[in-house]
Nucleic acid binder design. Structure first.
Lengths: 210, 210
DNA sequence: TAGATTGTTAATCGATTAACAATC
DNA sequence: TAGATTGTTAATCGATTAACAATC
């Protein structure tokens, strides 16, 4: 079941292709070619061809291109949109609550099943039908619901201890929204999404243009 | 004022260095070396050296390394944490509200000044003291407050029209949280942050390990 | 000084681009 | 068929790693 492996750069590109292909599909366009996508994304058609070839289950037709619907299916399949995964949110503050409420994850096969918080006032309550637990319940919930991913939205100061608890409880992947560096075992995948830094980088690029 | 330019990859690494350096600083550690950082980030010490050398205003001391405090200062300077920028949020739903409330942006020099929404019930209200306007006010607000960045959190269906309005109103950069491809003029920097796709990619990597 | 680490040039590695035969 | 696009191998480009002299 393991496909050829994509590079990190490619992984980053697939969601962009996907978003655009869906747009085409909505407009009723059912064929797409590499030169066409290359134009849209400002990259070479060879890159598009390699990217699509890597993950496509069916080959394209020389002369006419590839089926939009088939490509959407294959990219979603490759990214795992069709294999259900469970996630939890650590820290039910503003951002954490937004993740519990956000219903856009489900289309990517990700089901956010619960929140965790240290504030006793929040315990036992629920957001959008998703219960909020104390971290003492972590291991139990992770095992019972087969949770793979933890979304960490606690303040920087407590991020490391939360990461330790997650590691202890057997989590597989952490998506870290706190602006803190996490020390965890190499067996856990960590992705840092520092929103403030992301925006800073964006504006840095604007400055560079001038 | 334009420093040598960093590659995209480097830009992504600086926030990680920064988070770790701050941790060291808190612990009262005031010297850091490339081999040490390389160990923490699982990369080569040469890469660390090149990254730091590129942005450091002061040189390191052979034998003993670099000053943690100076590095923090230089990275923050380079990323633009010390040059105030204004941002607005398009779409005051769950995620948008979280961004209006989140106070972590200010340390990166980003001041979220207002929200925009199409729902008449929300207009005139405010979140965390930040007013919510109709998009008819876009141009006025962007010009009056010298806004650089727009954070787009509207549903995929309206993302393109919002992008068009932003373009029209003279925005410089868009951080797009909707899972939609945006067609905008090349003069506008666009960064796509598809959270669902991000998580999917993360869990894809977990799968690949097995 | 001796040990460690810097800054920087040269070698290697990987990803992107170019080229082209195959084919719908 | 002719035109366009695919799949794939070879060439190029850029980024990472290795090497090493300089120096605190």
């Amino acid at each position: 079941m393991t496909e050829k492996k994509a590079t990190l750069r490619q992984l980053e590109r697939y969601p962009n292709y996907l978003a655009y292909l869906k747009k085409l599909d909505q407009r009723g366009i059912d064929k797409v070619s590499s030169p066409m996508l290359a134009g849209v994304f400002n990259c070479s058609e060879e890159q598009v061809r390699k990217d699509l070839h890597l993950i496509a289950k069916r080959s394209g037709k020389p002369g006419s291109g590839r089926s939009v619907k088939e490509l959407i299916e294959d990219i979603e399949d490759f990214l795992g949109y069709n294999s259900e995964k469970r996630a939890i949110v650590m820290g039910v503050g503003n951002l954490g609550t937004a993740f519990l409420r956000y219903n856009g994850f489900i289309k990517a096969g990700i089901d956010v099943v619960a929140g965790f918080d240290s504030d006793p006032k929040k315990l036992g309550k629920s957001v959008e039908g998703k219960p909020i637990y104390a971290s003492s319940e972590l291991k139990k919930v992770i095992e019972a619901k087969d949770v793979t991913i933890a979304i960490v939205t606690v303040p920087a100061g407590s991020a490391q201890s939360v990461a330790d608890e997650l590691s202890e409880a057997g989590i597989k992947a952490i998506c870290n929204f706190s602006p803190a560096h996490l020390n965890v075992d190499d067996s856990i995948e960590v992705l840092n999404v520092d929103l403030a830094a992301t925006l800073a980088v964006l504006s840095h690029k604007v400055k560079d243009r001038e």
